[in-house]
Design a protein around this nucleic acid. Structure first.
Length: 366
DNA sequence: AACACGTGGGG
DNA sequence: TCCCCAAGTGT
């Protein structure tokens, strides 16, 4: 058994940081320690891979170079900057946070983890990351990498899906991390976790810290971390209505709460909400959709079933199967319609989720 | 304490 | 196709 005494801890710190100094990745947000840069990158990196984030980060800094630019940006522009990244409330919370900083903090970032965690969208992980990287505070940043790395090094078998387990790791890491380079230490752990100490196919034989890895030394690496699995996505049936009014496409903005908040799609209707009988025919479905348009939008829709394969889209917790309907609405003033008519050439101005892109692609709308 | 909340990649 | 994972947070 490895004994994590003071000498082991020093040895580990130096081994890890020496490796990081040599092999650490050169990433766009590592060019300086500006809290704004650290913050934006950390929010983008939540549940999202580095390779995906890089181009989004570059463009975001181009469009919104400062906290004030972010605070004052039109929301549609923000969502456009986030389009395709997912978890769209992240960017809306970022804008609220930016406004909060300007209004209540005189534009000055809190420099402690506790102070940072009081801001919207900043939880324990991000608070630790910003505090350690931007402000040199000796606090851990416990993300999936840290869970994986330290559960293996120390053979911690607490279930990382449980909220209370965080404390176990925070305590262990706080004891092990150096007080002179906390930000580099936290980032080194992340680099380690995404290179040699990955979840499925670790390459610990070549890891700079393999001699500290008790699970590896015991041949039990893949048993860590311990994590209960999540339920399967629940199937949900939808119809999408691709309706034209003259040369415009009918688009609706989703409510600000719930999935894909404030993003734009064609009208998407849960089949359950159409109150169809078990043995409903295609004609019944079209009639129900037409009635829905009249009731909800005050629009007269002429609908037809599109002979296309349904679009499927799987979210973390829902699996949508979407039948496509085409149609036209009589010209109207849209006073009761919670959306607008948009020319094909203007569609790319609207922030839309991936599932909407799939719908347009299936229907060959380009 | 659970569950909602996106998307892309790999096996 | 399905499952799991990836720099989590809000409710």
């Amino acid at each position: 058994m490895i004994e994590w005494n003071a000498a082991t801890i020093k040895d580990f710190q130096h081994t890890l940081l020496d490796w990081y100094d040599q092999e650490g990745r050169d990433l766009p947000w590592r060019h300086d320690h500006e809290p704004y840069h650290v913050w934006v990158s950390e929010i983008m990196l939540q549940q999202t891979q580095v390779q995906t984030v890089i181009p989004y980060y570059e463009r975001f800094m181009d469009w919104f170079p400062t906290v004030a630019d972010l605070a004052n940006a039109p929301e549609a522009r923000l969502l456009k900057a986030w389009e395709g990244l997912g978890y769209y409330s992240r960017v809306r919370n970022m804008q609220r946070c930016a406004q909060q900083l300007l209004a209540d903090y005189d534009g000055q970032w809190p420099q402690t983890a506790a102070g940072l965690e009081a801001l919207v969208g900043i939880g324990p992980y991000t608070a630790g990351a910003i505090a350690s990287i931007a402000f040199n505070q000796p606090v851990p940043a416990v993300d999936g990498n840290a869970y994986r790395v330290f559960s293996r090094l120390l053979k911690i078998d607490d279930d990382i899906a449980k909220p209370q387990t965080r404390q176990v790791f925070e305590q262990a890491i706080t004891r092990i991390m150096p007080h002179d380079r906390p930000g580099d230490f936290n980032q080194a752990i992340m680099d380690l976790g995404s290179s040699y100490m990955t979840a499925r196919q670790p390459d610990t034989a070549h890891s700079p810290v393999k001699r500290f890895n008790q699970a590896y030394l015991d041949g039990q690496e893949l048993a860590y971390p311990v994590k209960t699995k999540k339920p399967r996505p629940k199937p949900v049936a939808y119809v999408a209505v691709l309706a034209q009014m003259g040369d415009q496409w009918l688009m609706v903005q989703r409510p600000s709460t719930g999935m894909l908040g404030n993003l734009w799609t064609v009208p998407l209707i849960k089949v359950d909400e159409l109150d169809l009988e078990e043995d409903a025919s295609t004609a019944d479905l079209l009639a129900a959709v037409t009635a829905y348009f009249k009731r909800e939008y005050r629009l007269i829709l002429t609908a037809k079933m599109l002979k296309l394969r349904p679009v499927t889209h799987t979210f973390t917790h829902q699996k949508w199967t979407i039948q496509l309907i085409g149609g036209q609405v009589q010209p109207a003033d849209l006073a009761y319609f919670a959306g607008k008519g948009v020319l094909l050439a203007e569609l790319d101005q609207l922030p839309m989720p991936k599932v909407q892109e799939k719908i347009f692609n299936r229907a060959n709308v380009h």
